[in-house]
Design a protein around this nucleic acid. Structure first.
Lengths: 199, 199, 199, 199
DNA sequence: AATGAATGAGATTTCATTCAT
DNA sequence: CATGAATGAAATCTCATTCAT
């Protein structure tokens, strides 16, 4: 008796997953503005009311979607950081189209959804901290082989370049992309060498 | 550069400018989703119908707003490229908060407004081309002093890092920012030296 | 240029009056809970959106309705107070079915509409003050002929009895009504006599 | 007195009582409009479906709530009528804030819930009849000491004044309240004297 | 050049209720 | 006894857009 009446729809429900899937697809294809109760329902082949049964408010839906994506990112990041070549894996992570495209949508969304914003900030900081932790282990606290750039700086720089590639790529702008990729590539090679020296 | 100009109120009208100002403020403060006929009118202290009189459709308004911003960006870019230290000026341009925040909103908007998207793409490509033109003159076609990274790559890399700083800064995430800025700073110094050698 | 964009629909518009009429009828017939955008529109033979065009929020509609009723009450009260037999006129005012039934609905409504509540309170106090003003002139400050009951007390007592008659009458309860009316009647006679003595 | 009892959960269940308690609190705090299946469940810390398990329809819940309140009123009234000073006890009963506030909500509710209305009417009539019965015993059928006002009239008059005090008090209007209370007080004294003479 | 009126669509949310387990 | 899932209806509100003046 007397249990908290919220938290509807078991975390593992198939219906719930379908809704999140539809919401994610909409966000990816048409931007966060397209994620509405109705459209999610239609896309998932369900009734609009059912969406509200699982996610009482639109914020609840968006937060659940963000959480799911964040968990996936966490897993990908962990896999990257324990890979043979962690730097390259980290770069691949930053340059991963589907994940980063969603992240960008959430960043735009965070601008006017305060609930989302706090989740974003917390998660971004966690991820950067985790990367710094690993990069520090790889290169020592002194900094990376990139002219002594410290791990936190390297994390931001790679993330920024990755996002720019994906953002522009999504729009269809590609000038300079190959050159930028090659530039980063040459960094990775240099850093890998640096690391071997250190060992 | 001018594209088909669409007949929308006198280009120089004060009323028109007030509307664009209100629209820009809304977009900056609350995201592109807040830019609606009615809210623009309210914010500008005008009647909603008047907005439609000047901008028949919402797309027209958004495009006009984008154009105005693009023109400002063009001017800023031209000023930067003819500055004493064009590289530093270019970087300052990329790291300029107010302008970039709007650009990010437009990028998000382009995801579900096809009319906007084409304007965005066209303008992005123009700007990159213009930068390449200048950087090539500075460093020769062989590439910059950054390990031979060609101008187009450098343009994207700087733009990406600048945007990341602003995006994250807007959210309140600042880990790694100082380090990344110092890293870019050291580039600018190196490139300036390189350039003097070349002269 | 630059006028406040609210205050839609001229105060004298026929459409606006039709909406208020429909809202009032609904409130009288089915209680304040029945006053919804849709039902008002349907009852007035108009489209629901038009209701929102005239009254952006439901509170706006309810406040406008209250104001209209308050103005009518004010007029009725003034007429009563300047009648030949002001006391009887005041009692007739309190026992007026249609007006009081609405007042009762607004009182119930005020319980959970904070905007309404403040209007109600202000108006109730004004009306009582106005009545006290007149009754004081009629009987002197010492009090009425009802065993020295002061004007403010008499105002509340008459209002309460009138409301009880109307509330119960609306439900179909009538036991004691004739007796209560006769009781008040005998007061009025007594007070009228008292007043003549005083003159 | 018992009417057809409808099968709704064990009459004495603690869960049931919790629901009625939540419903009553909601009605008191936010008006009858706030009494919905879901809100009652949330407030009681129970699942919405459970409310429907005990009270198939919302009307069933409201009727049960009304019944419970009516029973309490009956007890209070009986206690009052057998008190040392029945008249004062009756007046205290009419001026009792917590009970009367709920009664007023039910009166408003009765306006658009026909099922509630008939219960209200029946109970109101019963209560008045009971009061008349007692007052007649106290004063004889001829009427009370209030200028011969018969018991039924006195009942309505006192109820009306009591309700007005509570209604207005709830809103924060208090002008004339002290005077009205003093006026009734002086009645009670007069009636008590009258009664002793009669004995 | 400007504005009031009107409208249809859709977004968000809350609801009562049913059903199967 | 009790609960989770589902659904259709409706309430509130915002929007873009059209039209007549």
């Amino acid at each position: 008796m007397a249990v908290a009446p919220r938290r509807v729809g078991a975390e593992g429900s198939a219906t719930r997953a379908a809704m999140l899937g539809a919401a994610e697809a909409l966000m990816r294809d048409e931007g966060y503005g397209a994620v509405s109760t109705r459209r999610v329902a239609t896309r998932a082949g369900l009734k609009p009311s059912l969406v509200h049964y699982y996610f009482p408010t639109t914020d609840d839906l968006l937060i659940a979607l963000f959480r799911r994506g964040a968990d996936q990112s966490d897993e990908m990041l962990e896999a990257a950081l324990s890979a043979d070549d962690p730097l390259r894996a980290l770069w691949d992570f930053f340059a991963d189209t589907s994940r980063t495209a969603l992240t960008l949508e959430f960043m735009a969304l965070a601008n006017h959804r305060k609930t989302i914003r706090s989740f974003m900030v917390e998660h971004s900081e966690q991820m950067r901290a985790r990367q710094v932790e690993l990069l520090s282990r790889l290169f020592g606290k002194a900094g990376t082989g990139l002219d002594g750039c410290p791990p936190a700086g390297l994390s931001l720089v790679l993330a920024g370049i990755g996002r720019a590639l994906i953002m522009e790529g999504g729009l269809g702008v590609t000038a300079g992309h190959a050159e930028a990729r090659a530039f980063v590539e040459q960094w990775l090679v240099r850093l890998a060498a640096e690391r071997e020296l250190q060992d």
